[in-house]
Structures are given as structure tokens and as C-alpha cells.
Design a protein around this nucleic acid. Structure first.
Lengths: 338, 338
DNA sequence: CTCTGGCACTCTTCGCACGCGAGTGCCAGA
DNA sequence: TCTGGCACTCGCGTGCGAAGAGTGCCAGAG
């Protein structure tokens, strides 16, 4: 096991490297942190840390930089989550409170996270399947054409066109709307399929086709992977990545454009608290030189979706984790109010 | 005025530079294009073109590259719009037809444009103010809380919460819904304010406050600048910008994150056809080294919104213009069908 | 056993000079 | 008006040497 001082040395290396973006040498370390020992001693510790795979040198005569494994140890054992200051908290709250609808909440959250962390922000819309139904609306747009509108308790609104196999009267429409709502309002979306399956039986033969069509459209809307949406922002922060970045930034931008990749990325984090995935821990290889800090958020105790940031592995983990956690908390509050 | 051959030379310079990304010299020009004259002659022509400001040399002993003014002349006089090939057209149509709702149409359009042009795509949602009302729905979520849902003929759905000053009965709600729709359904959004202003008078004193609140929320939703939304994609293509691009890409990404900037950018183009703004013609200085190719699209003859691409001034103008025009046309068709 | 100072060694980086090659401008002649 | 020739200018890549940062190892002290 590593001695206490060696952990201190690792912590110091991470902090310095995050600050300066340059490999850190033994001399600089002893000058900036008062470790109480000489550079020579630190060199021995560094050799040990390198032996264990926590740090590495880009070339023989350079300082050391942390490896993914080194950052992992730093995050798990050496650093806490840095809480936001009261003024920052107030700013977050004020900024989010001005939102007029869910799109606006999500858009503001993205901007906020990107600004606070100076990294790329990703915010998932509240998942339908983890929300409850507030209301289902059916509108008649043409004799054989309906619009189905789903409204969740988190403020998300989803609409779909329905082409009916036969004209559908106003009375039938009102009937269906009422029956549908009495069954599903306030229930979880995951329960909807079983709650509505026998609904066509309550209607006249003429209308059954339409009712079935409406229901199947409703169920399609709830299919996982299909119903997930997200918003990203702060991509301009990628330019602060590093000096070499033409090659680095490219795959990251590409990965960020693939919603599927991002959803998987956020989905992987099962932890109830803030989750950090560092470098190669990310399955997608375009993101092998980035870290993802994510957390679930929700209006009640339960998470309805996730949000997070994507940045270089060389990032300020305590600060980023603090910002992500704080933003998630306030977004949850806002959703609960609406 | 420039002689015919000098224009040919300019055209050749633009084409070569777009292809190779390198300054083009007199010798290379005569080899690649059979202009029927010697390099020396071309040199004289180049000197003249440089004198007039159409081309420039990065350093004394380098070839020439087109200036913004040179590209402008090229776009206006020397190049047409390159039409898409039939297979490409079919691919566009197929890809867009799979969309399930407006968000999906816009998302698919962005991906399509980004792929076709290999540049950054920007697509504006159909403007509310230039659309007509299909339906206005009012839902009661709580005794003193309503949800207002606006649906346009282009498939756009906008929702807002309304906190009522007093509880609002189901009967009043149905009444308001019916009156509202009979007045505004099928009308243009710009006419809505004058169509509804006397509506509160038709209600009992108790309900007037709520009716007014609903109406003012409705009108707020229609305020220009507020109601505009857009989606962008293909930012990974920015990495193909050039060699020097840390400095180039940064301001572009920043500009792209500012919806206001983009909306202005698209809004500036008044032309009914494809509009091209080259380099410094763009007001925003972050975009001074990019060109914007945009066009309006709409379900009928009239444009309800714009779409376009942002790329380096060194871009394939004829091809890009062709792609943008074709995509706009098919999006218009899809919207008309839905 | 651990820490320390010293010392030799390794590599990267930077500055500089140099030569090559691309491209130009100009001029005299067709 | 066009062409071929020629001298000139620069940017770019290469090679070399000095400087500097950082390391590893070793012998000695606590």
C-alpha cells in the first residue's frame, strides 16, 4: 500500500497538473506544496507511483502527469466534492427560476452548467418512462386525423399525429379522452400499457380500430431509447482542451453529436450520487481522453433523468462535481414547483 | 471591367483553392485548366486581379488565394447552383419521410444538411408569427392552473403554464376554449392579438381576470425573438477548417451557441432564393472567416423559417447552395403533408 | 531503514544558419 | 497582347549546438 506521503505527492501532482497543464517535476512540487521533504525524496516517491501506474512521463526528461488510474485514486480517496459558495447557489437559483417552460429549463441548465464548469454540458430531458402522467389530450384536426398530446408531471409535453382508419366522432373522442385520463392520470408511464389494453372493448365496433391506433401510438411514444431527448452546450469550451487538439477535439465533437452515445454515457452511471468516469473508463473510444461527471436529478427523491459535463481528464474534479451536484439539486426543485 | 479571361482565371483560382486548400500559383493553374495561355500571361492577369482586390497572397513568394470580394464575384457571376443528382434527391426524401413529429423533422434535417455539405447545419423551427393557428387547447391541471397549448399548421406545438388569479370552472374553460378556437383557428398568428382583445368582455366578472391572464400568456408566446427556436448540428465538421484552427474555431463555436446571433444571421437574408454571406459580410465578427448559405423554406409558397449551413469561406459554393436548396424544398413538402 | 545532497545523463526545445523550391515581377522580343 | 527568360524574394524544412529541465542513482547522515 502507498504511504500517506506518497498519496500527498499524487494529490499535489494532480492539482498542479490541472492548474498548469504541464508535466510537473520534483523541484516544482516541493516549492509549491510544503511537503517537508526534499526533491530527491519526492523523486523516489514519484518513481514508486509510476511503478504502480498512477503517473507517467510523456518523455524521459519531462515531469510526470497523472494517468487515468491516478485520477481515479484522486477522485475516490484524495479529494472531496467542493461545495458551491452561497452567492453561487443564489445565482444558480435565480437563473433557473426565470424559465417559462421545460425546454427553457433544460436550455438554461445547459448554459449554466457550461458556464460554471467551463466544459461541455449535457442535460437529459426528464424521462417519460420514469415520470407520471399528468394528462392525455386528444384533439381532432380533421375527420380522420387526431393529435395525441402527452403531458407529464415534470412538464414535458410530447405530441404525435394519429391517422385514423375511420372517421371518429366528437362524442367518441370525448369519451375516449375521458376514459383514457381516468385510467392513466397520476399513474406511472410504465404502468400505462397494462392500464389501457382492454380499452378498445368498451367502444362500438366502428370506433375500435381508431382506439387501437391511438393506443398503439401512445405506446410507441413510450418506447425506451425513442423517447429520450437531450440538449448539449458549451462546446466552445472544447477549444481549451490542449495544444494538440485538432486530433483530440474531433472525435469528441463526433461523439457529442450522437445522442445514442451520450444517452449510454449518462445511463451507465448507476450511482445515486455524482458519478465520475475517467478516460478509458468510458466505453466510447472517442471519449477516451475525456472524463464525464454526471448525476441524476428529479423533482422528488427519485431521479427522472441525468445531467453532467464532459471535459478533459485533466479537469478540476472537486469543483466540477460540486457544480454538477448543485445544479442538479436546483433543477429538481424547479421541476417540483412547476 | 475585367476581361473574360481574367474571370476565367479567378474561377480557376477559386476552384483550385477550394480543392487543395493551398495558395495556387500561375504554373499550377495553367497545368490544371487549359486556359490556352502561358503562366506568364496568367501572372499578369493575377496581378490585375490582385490590384482590384479579388485575390491576395499570404506572403510575397506564395500563390494567390481568393479574397471575400473574389468569392463574392465567383458566387454572383461565375458559378451557378449545382443541382443534386436524382439518387441524392431520393435519399433526401426517404430520410425526411421517416420523421414522426416536428422535432424529428428538424433533427433529421440538421443531420442531413450536415452530412451533405460536410459543414455545420442550422435549421430554424417554423416561425409562429408566420404560421397559422391550427388549434388552441386549454387544459385544467389544478383548480387555478391551466396549461395553454398552441398548435400550428406546420406541426409546431408550444405550451405554457398559466397561473389563474381565481379558480376557473370546467364550464368556463370549455366556453373559453370554444370561443378562442372559433376566432383564431385557421388565422395567421399575427392577427391573433386583434382577434382576441375583446374576449374578456364576453365573460362573467369572476372569470375575466383569468381570461385576461390566458390571453396575455398567449400573446407573450408570440413575441418575436422569444418564439424563435433552432437546432444546429455537424459541429464536428469544423475540425476540417484549416491547419491554424485553434484560433479560428473558437469564435465560431461561440457564435453558434448564441441563438440570437444565429437568428440574426439567418434573418438578414431577405432574398427569396438561396442567400450567401461571405466572410466579413457577416455582421458578427466571430464569423468573419466563415460563409453562411441560407434559404427560406415553407409548406406553401411562403417561407415560414430558414435553414442553412455555416462553413469556411473556402467552401464549395455551387454544391453547398444546391444541397441547401434541395433540402429546403423537401422539408417544405414534408411540412405540407403533415 | 529513510531521507538528503550531489552528480552524471538523457531528452526536448529553441535559436540560427543554410539551401531548396515555389512563385513572382519585369523586360525584351515575337 | 502574349510569351519565354531571368533575377529576386521568401517561406519552409533540415541540421547542429547550447541551454535547461528533470531524472536516476549513489553514498552518506540521522
Amino acid at each position: 500500500m502507498l504511504s500517506e506521503r506518497r498519496l500527498q505527492v499524487l494529490r499535489a501532482i494532480v492539482q498542479d497538473y490541472v492548474g498548469t497543464e504541464e508535466p510537473v517535476g520534483s523541484k516544482a512540487l516541493t516549492e509549491r506544496h510544503n511537503l517537508g521533504v526534499s526533491p530527491a525524496t519526492v523523486r523516489n516517491d514519484m518513481a514508486a507511483l509510476e511503478e504502480e501506474g498512477f503517473i507517467a512521463q510523456p518523455h524521459t526528461s519531462a515531469g510526470r502527469i497523472p494517468t487515468d488510474k491516478g485520477y481515479r485514486l484522486f477522485v475516490d480517496k484524495l479529494a472531496g466534492v467542493k461545495p458551491m459558495s452561497p452567492p453561487e447557489r443564489r445565482a444558480i437559483q435565480n437563473f433557473l427560476e426565470g424559465a417559462v417552460d421545460l425546454d427553457d429549463v433544460v436550455a438554461r441548465t445547459v448554459r449554466l452548467l457550461a458556464q460554471l464548469t467551463r466544459q461541455v454540458a449535457v442535460v437529459q430531458y426528464p424521462s417519460l418512462t420514469r415520470s407520471t402522467v399528468r394528462h392525455v389530450e386528444l384533439l381532432s384536426l380533421a375527420p380522420a386525423r387526431l393529435m395525441l398530446v402527452l403531458i407529464t408531471d415534470t412538464g414535458r409535453v410530447e405530441q404525435r399525429m394519429v391517422d385514423c382508419p375511420a372517421p371518429f366522432g366528437e362524442a367518441s373522442l370525448a369519451d375516449l379522452r375521458a376514459r383514457l385520463n381516468s385510467r392513466v392520470a397520476g399513474r406511472r408511464f410504465t404502468d400505462v400499457p397494462s392500464l389501457v389494453e382492454d380499452l378498445p372493448e368498451a367502444f362500438e365496433a366502428d370506433d375500435r380500430g381508431t382506439v387501437s391506433t391511438v393506443l398503439s401510438t401512445l405506446l410507441e411514444t413510450l418506447v425506451e431509447e425513442n423517447e429520450e431527448r437531450l440538449m448539449i452546450g458549451g462546446t466552445a469550451n472544447l477549444t481549451r482542451f490542449g495544444h494538440d487538439f485538432p486530433l483530440t477535439i474531433r472525435p469528441v465533437l463526433e461523439a457529442l453529436e450522437e445522442q445514442v452515445v451520450l444517452l449510454k454515457l449518462l445511463g451507465e452511471a448507476k450511482d445515486p450520487g455524482v458519478t465520475v468516469r475517467i478516460g478509458h473508463e468510458n466505453a466510447h473510444e472517442g471519449l477516451n481522453s475525456t472524463s464525464v461527471v454526471s448525476v441524476g436529478y428529479g423533482s422528488g427523491g427519485e431521479a427522472v433523468a441525468k445531467l453532467g459535463v464532459v471535459g478533459p481528464t485533466r479537469m478540476d474534479y472537486p469543483g466540477t462535481m460540486g457544480a454538477v451536484r448543485a445544479v442538479a439539486r436546483y433543477v429538481g426543485q424547479i421541476l417540483a414547483e412547476s
